[in-house]
Design a protein around this nucleic acid. Structure first.
Lengths: 205, 205
DNA sequence: CACTAAAACGGAGGCGCCTCCGTTTATTTA
DNA sequence: TAAATAAACGGAGGCGCCTCCGTTTTAGTG
């Protein structure tokens, strides 16, 4: 009984994605950007034809770049996660480190909110493409770690906590049931958490 | 801060489903039956309009009975599970108990095969409607238990095993990867298992 | 039966999905 | 810069989804 190679899912065939032609790259970026806006506005079932229309390209172009709705959702989600991670560095440069942390957590709430909107599609994507989840959640918690450590280091938040503690506290935001009050409740949680973190700042390191 | 009752999913509102009108019941049954055939033949994305057409009803009728594709999938799946459970009793009446068990396991393989076809939809249904999974898997293993116990009792299979052992052995069928050879492999597993069960039958009870 | 209200039917119509292929554009070559 | 060609564009067209509402059927009632 011979073992034939079971047809495997063709994960990016390592063939380094050759650079797109200039116009193609432009359209691709624009589509992802518009898709994020339209999904946020109309929900995950938004018309793909509307997205193409608003991006100023033909429907054929959308489908060439994103063969299925899920491809598009994945790209939107990845961009969202990257933007959140990138924001950590920018906020740290522009604000006192405790303020940077607070603002970042506020954005984290918004990020989770969009994720909820995409819930069903993401669930499918996560079981299909398990790298997606571990990639992004790893990078997001890395961004948080950076902010927490900076704030602890310069004494704007107390020194007896670490990033894992904060992540743990944010877990409630992630897993809370999806009620209408969810977003406000989450924002209050962030404020509470920050008050707790600032209390006794500058004591032990 | 008052706790308002969070809007809950309206699981069958206990309002005992009043009996349908005769024509409605007929159409509903026919639709479920045809849907099972069409899903098996064309896959989970089969056209609902084709199902209505083949059932000899209008598309509106299909949608009145099954407002979404998932409703239809759920009903098909439940019927399949019920048929499998019902078969246990019939086979037991018609065949020696070891043969009944063997034939039932063969049908179990077929049942799992259709489940695989419906995989994505079922995954969504299972996370949405968690009762569905526990209901059916409980009843299916109950049916198996009945067959195994009968066969042990009259000595056509060995007495030092119980239904849980057999269920455990069948677990491989359930969780094996979905290769082209899956079905044949599963059938061989059933035969092997039966050989093992028959070996030394009638010794200890 | 004849009549009626409630229930169910069914398909037209509007919209979105997705493919296919003729047209346009960016890039390379001479 | 002009010609050649590979790449990308875009929208028409065919099909499926789903709602809406006029028509038909059933199950009571006198």
């Amino acid at each position: 009984m011979a073992f034939e190679p079971v047809t495997t899912v063709d994960q990016k065939p390592a063939a380094a994605d050759k650079p797109l032609r200039a116009d193609a790259q432009r359209n691709r970026d624009r589509l992802a950007e518009v898709a994020a806006a339209v999904f946020a506005e109309r929900g995950i079932d938004a018309s793909l034809e509307e997205i193409a229309r608003r991006a100023g390209v033909g429907i054929g172009t959308l489908y060439r770049h994103f063969p299925t709705r899920e491809h598009l959702v994945e790209v939107v989600y990845r961009r969202e996660a990257e933007a959140l991670c990138a924001a950590a560095g920018e906020l740290a440069a522009k604000h006192p480190s405790d303020v940077a942390l607070e603002e970042w957590m506020r954005r984290f709430v918004d990020y989770i909110a969009t994720k909820r909107g995409l819930a069903t599609s993401l669930r499918i994507l996560f079981t299909t493409n398990s790298g997606l989840f571990s990639d992004t959640s790893g990078r997001v918690s890395q961004a948080l770690r950076q902010l927490v450590e900076a704030a602890v280091a310069d004494g704007t938040i107390r020194g007896d906590v670490d990033a894992s503690d904060v992540l743990h506290a944010l877990g409630g935001i992630y897993s809370a049931p999806d009620t209408p009050e969810w977003r406000d409740r989450s924002r209050r949680l962030v404020k509470l958490l920050m008050d707790g973190l600032r209390f006794g700042a500058g004591k032990a390191g």
